[in-house]
Simulated assay, not measured.
Amino acid sequence: MSEDVKVEVGLGERAYDILIGPGLIGRAGAEIGSRLAGIRAAIVTDENVAAQHLEALKAGLDAGRIASSTIVLPAGEKTKNFAALQEVVDAVLAARLERGDAVIAFGGGVIGDLSGFAAGIVRRGMNFVQMPTSLLAQVDSSVGGKTGINSTRGKNLIGVFHQPRLVLADTAVLDTLPLREFRAGYAEVAKYGLIDRPDFFAWLERNWQDVFAGGPARIEAIAQSCRAKADVVARDEFETGDRALLNLGHTFGHALEAAVGYDGARLVHGEGVAIGMALAHRFSARMNLASPDDAARVEAHLKAVGLPWRMADVPGGLPDAETLLSFIAQDKKVSRGALTFILTRGIGQSFIARDVPVSEVLAFLKENHTG
C-alpha cells in the first residue's frame, strides 16, 4: 500500500501533482507513464546522485517501459552555467528526443534549475519531470517552474518559467543526504512558517528533531512546505505579486553566496537563506516593524538545528559592507533601482517592502558585518 502524500499545484490545464513518500524512484516509470504515455526520456543528474541512485531510477523507468538516456554533470552550484546548459541541450538533441518526450531532473536544486531551463528551450519547450533528491529541492526549487542558471553578475539571472508535468519526491533518498545538506534544506522548510504560517513554525520548533530523524514527521514537514508553495504558485505563477514572499531571506542570502563566489565548501544555498532570514528579521526590528524578540526566536531555532544565523558564521570572512550592498543591488529583487526586501511584522507576518532606503541597508550591513 502506497504511503504517498499527493499535493496538487493548481494551474488549470497545466496543473500537476507532487507525490511525496518513500520508494518513488522504483515506481517512477509507472507514475510518469500514467501521465505521459509512450515517451522516451533524458535523465539529467550529477555525479553524487548517479553513484547512489541512478541504477535504481533506470530500473524504475524500465519497469514502466520508458527508454532513457543519461547526462551526468559535476555536482555543485558552479554547474549552473552556460557550458553545462549547452552540454544538456546537445545531449538531448543527440538522443533525438522530441517535444513530446521528457527531461527528468534527478538531483538537487542545481540539477532541477538547469534541467528545467534546458527543457524549456529545447524544441521550444519539452515535457519536464522533477525528481528532487535533496530536502531543499523537494520543498522549494522543484515546485513552481522557476528554472535557470547563474551569471557572473549574480544568481539565477538567466532562465525561464517552465512548469514540470510531475514532481516525484522520494523521501527515502534523504536518508543518504549528508547532514549539512539536510540542514540547508531545512532552512527552506522553516521559511514557509516564517512567511505566513506561524502555527507551522511553532510545530517545527517542537518537532524538528523528529523531522531530522525521518518517518511521518519528515513527510508531514515536506508536504506542508509543498502545500504552502503550491498555494502561492497557483495565485502568482510568474512572480508579479505575492510569490515574491517566497524570497524571504534570499536577498541577503544570495548576496552572501555571490560574496563567496558560490563556493559550496564555504556556504551552500540553504545556509545563505538561513542567515538571510535571520538578517531579514533583525533588519525588520531595526526598522521598528517587528519586535527584537521575534528575531531572537528565529535565531534561536536556526542555532538549535545547527544552521548558521549571522554573517560571522560564514567561514573565510566576507568583503566589506559596500561590496555586499552591490551584490544586493544586482539581485533580481530590484525594480527600477529601488531595493525590494521581504521584511516581517512578526513570526508568520512577512510582506513585500519596496523602496527600502539604501542608506538603511548599508548601515545595517556595517552593524552586522563580521569585521
Rank of each mutant, 00 (worst) to 15 (best):
L11E: 03
N156G: 02
A50R: 07
L365N: 12
V89K: 10
E8W: 15
T176W: 14
F351W: 13
E8S: 12
D17N: 11
V211I: 14
A41W: 14
T45E: 07
S68T: 09
F252H: 00
E181W: 04
D293C: 11
M287D: 02
I347H: 01
A105C: 04
V334D: 08
S142N: 10
A84Q: 11
A300D: 04
A304N: 14
D17C: 02
E299L: 06
P308Q: 04
V9G: 05
W309A: 09
R297G: 00
E271T: 03
H53N: 10
G261Y: 10
G125T: 04
G107I: 07
R123D: 03
I222Q: 05
R206L: 06
Q130P: 06
G144P: 06
S359I: 14
V173T: 05
A321H: 07
M1G: 10
K6D: 15
L135M: 05
V356M: 07
G29Q: 14
S284N: 11
D175F: 11
I20Q: 03
I18K: 06
L135K: 08
E257T: 07
M311R: 10
A353I: 11
D4C: 08
L93R: 14
G29H: 13
D242Q: 00
T147F: 00
V7F: 13
E239T: 10
H254F: 03
V273H: 03
L307F: 06
S291R: 15
Q130C: 10
D355W: 04
D17A: 07
A221R: 08
I121L: 03
D196P: 03
V268P: 00
M311W: 11
Q163V: 07
V211P: 00
L307I: 07
Q86M: 15
P315I: 09
L307V: 03
R336Q: 13
T147R: 00
D113C: 05
H254R: 15
K58D: 05
R354I: 08
F364D: 07
F341V: 02
K80R: 04
D17I: 07
A202M: 10
N368W: 08
L248K: 05
R96T: 11
D90P: 09
A83M: 12
A91C: 08
V232P: 01
D331V: 08
R336L: 12
P74C: 04
G125N: 10
L168D: 03
A119R: 06
K78Y: 07
A259R: 01
L174E: 12
S34E: 14
I18P: 01
G120D: 04
M277H: 10
L343V: 12
N368L: 09
L93M: 14
H254S: 02
S151W: 01
G215Y: 11
R282I: 09
P292D: 12
L246V: 09
L57E: 06
E239N: 01
V358I: 08
A75S: 15
V361E: 06
S284I: 08
V358G: 09
S34A: 12
A255F: 00
L36G: 04
P315K: 03
A244Q: 01
E237L: 12
L279M: 13
E31Q: 15
V334S: 13
A255R: 01
C226R: 03
R197Q: 11
S142D: 05
V273I: 15
T133N: 09
